[in-house]
């Protein structure tokens, strides 16, 4: 459970029904379905700040039911088929923003060209949530405890966004700007994620959670390359260690500079400022981040 849900169930946000029972119901909102990306821009322009885009809804619906979010209108983009699916070109893999977690898990192209995503998505919630949740929804939501933002950092992905003013490409390291905040402008839509094909690469993934499918207490998505026993490239994307997914550049630099795993683990304190919450203190998270680094890097070195 992410920090923003902690204790939310005890907030006075529920409707009572006629029997006086307290339940978890969304406030009233309007609903409209967008038929295309351009249609979605027009609807966003018409409805302004009170509008919210609905993709898979697996983070938005809980927020609505708990009344942590109360938009005037939902613009449902989930039926824009052009935004769903995986395309492989000679140099990269392009994933439509509305590609669902279950699609990624079942995709032979993702297994072949971006296996880190397969590893990560298997840890995202449960089958009945992976069947609806989308990669674009997860990235645009920018939950600091979510797996996929950290994966895009590790993979150095490019995020394709489109707005009425045109299209632009945002590097994943520039996309996540804060707690549930991204570099998207209010009228822009994330349309695709592009990842370079890196045939000689190796990936690793691990997260610590109390129960399978829960949000991680700390997690690490890693991607890199080893030549003749030496790290030539390494990106360490941590999640659930603060307000946003974070690249541990100091620790990675130690390893690519020929340093030891112990030295890299020590360097993590320059990379991460983990938060405290009911699950773990900042110091515990910092410790667990070091544990995960040792596990994941060892796994990658033995696989390389």
């Amino acid at each position: 459970m992410p920090a923003w849900l902690d204790g939310a169930a005890c907030l006075p946000t529920s409707d009572g029904n006629e029997k006086g029972e307290r339940r978890v119901k969304a406030a009233a909102f309007d609903y409209v379905r967008a038929s295309s990306v351009a249609d979605a821009w027009a609807l966003l322009a018409r409805h302004g700040a009170g509008a919210k885009l609905l993709a898979g809804g697996q983070s938005l619906l809980p927020a609505l039911n708990l009344r942590l979010s109360a938009p005037d209108i939902l613009i449902d983009i989930s039926r824009i088929e052009a935004l769903r699916g995986v395309t492989v070109s000679p140099h990269s893999v392009r994933i439509g923003a509305l590609t669902r977690h279950a699609d990624l898990l079942a995709s032979p192209e993702i297994a072949a060209h971006a296996p880190l995503l397969c590893r990560a998505v298997a840890e995202v919630a449960h089958p009945a949530i992976r069947s609806r949740g989308t990669i674009g929804g997860s990235l645009a939501n920018a939950d600091p405890a979510a797996e996929l933002p950290a994966c895009t950092l590790a993979l150095d992905a490019r995020l394709h966004v489109e707005g009425p003013g045109g299209a632009r490409v945002i590097a994943s390291r520039d996309f996540f700007t804060g707690l549930f905040e991204t570099a998207l402008h209010p009228n822009e839509i994330l349309v695709a994620i592009e990842i370079d094909r890196q045939p000689a690469s190796v990936c690793g993934f691990a997260e610590l959670a109390r129960r399978s499918g829960d949000y991680a207490i700390v997690g690490l998505a890693a991607h890199g390359a080893i030549a003749a026993g030496v790290w030539t490239e390494l990106r360490l994307g941590y999640f659930s260690v603060g307000t946003r997914a974070t690249l541990a550049t100091h620790a990675a630099g130690v390893l690519t500079g020929g340093g030891t795993l112990l030295e890299a683990a020590a360097a993590l304190e320059h990379d991460l400022q983990p938060h405290d919450d009911l699950q773990a203190s900042s110091a515990t998270r910092q410790h667990l981040a070091r544990v995960l680094l040792r596990r994941v890097v060892a796994e990658m070195e033995s696989a390389a």
Binding site: G57, P62, S78, A128, R132
Partner: peptide
């Protein structure tokens, strides 16, 4: 609230009826 929608299981509380 697990049920089947279009052949796959979903959380019925996380899908709007209009969807």
């Amino acid at each position: 609230c697990t049920l089947r929608l279009d052949g796959v299981i979903v959380r019925g509380c996380l899908v709007l009826a209009v969807q």
